[in-house]
Simulated scan of single mutants.
Amino acid sequence: MLLELAGIDKQVGADTWLYPLNLTLQESAVTILLGATRAGKTSLMRIMAGLDTPTTGRVLVDGQDVTGVPVRRRNIAMVYQQFINYPSMTVADNIASPLRLSGQRDVLPRVREIARTLHIEEFLDRLPAELSGGQQQRVALARALAKDAPLMLLDEPLVNLDYKLREDLREELGDMFSQGRSTVVYATTEPAEALLLGGYTAVLDRGELLQYGPTIDVFQRPNSMRVARAFSDPPMNFIEARADGAALHCQGMGPVPLSGSNLPSGAVTLGLRAADLSLQHQGGDCLISGQVQLAEISGSATYVHAQTPVGNLIAQVPGVSHHQLGDAITLHFSSRQAYVFGPDESLLRAPQMEARHGSY
């Protein structure tokens, strides 16, 4: 299915939920809607589904205007954060319901295949009320996958699951989506989820569409500081600087040489991802001295918050790293990893880097 949004916006009373935007989704591919809560992701998906209509603009499916066509007359599947299942049906019957509605008879093999993928095969004979919230969410997701609709809309479908299961399902869903049987729209607040699912990403912020393109391209070349903030977790570090030819000068640290660059002289902003700041000397790199404010251990990484002469910075350090409040540290980074943004916050320079799934 080719889905196009042409000049749509959404006004609710005096509030603007979506600013005018144009978006053509890649056919038979996954598009990630990435943004914080209240960025406009759900509002956009409701318009795509036909649950809501834009204030102005058109929704086109395969070139046909379907703006006023209700959801019941569209062949779509949708999963919300708040799962919806048929309470009187078993898990197996919930998953099988769209298959039977389409006239299929021997549906059990397909039901078992999807249930196995989502780790709910052992619950097929139970009613939804007998399951945990995360298990019920997987049933709703399984029913949507079983429908095999040409357009599938998934609004943060893994948000209610535990960390390990989320990690496993992200990879399995990515494999399923890569088969290209449906045009998939997947909303998330997590940059890691966008990187793992791949495909294309549309970055939203406070109702505005900021950038759309292949996920890894948007990650590596955010066109503005707003996109860089949205596509970084923890947030990208920003440092005030002045450009002078092929170098940046920041008060409180040495110059940052940018070989091959010829930036216009004047005020700019240096951007550094937390994963590109190290506590180890790397040779030929740039240094920032500081003091530890906080060290957060999270999974396989430690987030070190440091007070420095150039502002408060966050470093994402692999493994478990123990620090005391007030410890003196030195942050290292390579100038090759530096982003530079202009006075209008637009991107002037991006590092040349390999795709690094799991690093933000």
Rank of each mutant, 00 (worst) to 15 (best):
S28E: 12
L34A: 10
R46W: 04
R181C: 03
G358M: 03
D155F: 10
L108N: 08
Q324M: 08
I288Y: 01
H119M: 09
A301T: 10
T215W: 02
G134M: 06
V79F: 06
G358T: 07
E130V: 01
S335D: 08
R138N: 08
D327C: 06
Y360D: 15
V159G: 11
A187G: 06
V310Q: 07
G57R: 13
D233L: 11
G266Q: 03
P309M: 04
A247L: 12
L210S: 09
G290K: 02
E4F: 04
G311K: 00
L145V: 08
L34N: 11
S335R: 06
V71S: 10
V59Y: 11
G174T: 05
A129P: 00
A115L: 03
R74D: 09
P257D: 01
D175Q: 15
D106M: 02
T24V: 13
L272T: 08
E27Q: 14
M1P: 11
L151V: 15
G358Y: 03
V185K: 01
L196D: 05
Q282A: 09
A6L: 14
T67I: 09
P87N: 05
E345N: 14
V310D: 01
V320T: 15
V61G: 00
E121F: 02
P234W: 01
S289H: 12
V218W: 06
V12S: 13
F177A: 12
I8L: 12
D148I: 00
E190L: 09
T188M: 09
G342Q: 02
E113Y: 07
A6K: 15
E190V: 02
Y19T: 13
A77E: 10
H332A: 05
F238A: 10
V69M: 15
N237K: 01
L272G: 08
L331H: 00
A274Y: 00
A241R: 03
S28G: 07
S259R: 14
L325I: 06
R46S: 13
Q82I: 01
V185F: 04
Q282V: 04
E354D: 15
L169P: 15
E172P: 03
L331K: 01
A149I: 00
A115Q: 11
T302H: 05
L347G: 01
P214C: 05
R349Q: 07
A39M: 13
Y212K: 04
I76G: 11
S224V: 03
T56R: 15
I288D: 01
S259K: 14
E354T: 12
Q81H: 04
V59T: 11
S224F: 02
Q64V: 15
A146L: 03
P191S: 07
R226G: 08
L44T: 14
A140T: 01
R105I: 06
P351M: 10
T269H: 12
G13N: 03
V79I: 12
E190A: 05
H357I: 15
M1L: 10
Q291I: 03
R73I: 00
A355V: 05
P70E: 05
R273W: 06
A36Y: 11
W17T: 13
I120L: 07
G207V: 11
E193L: 03
P150G: 11
G40A: 12
A77C: 10
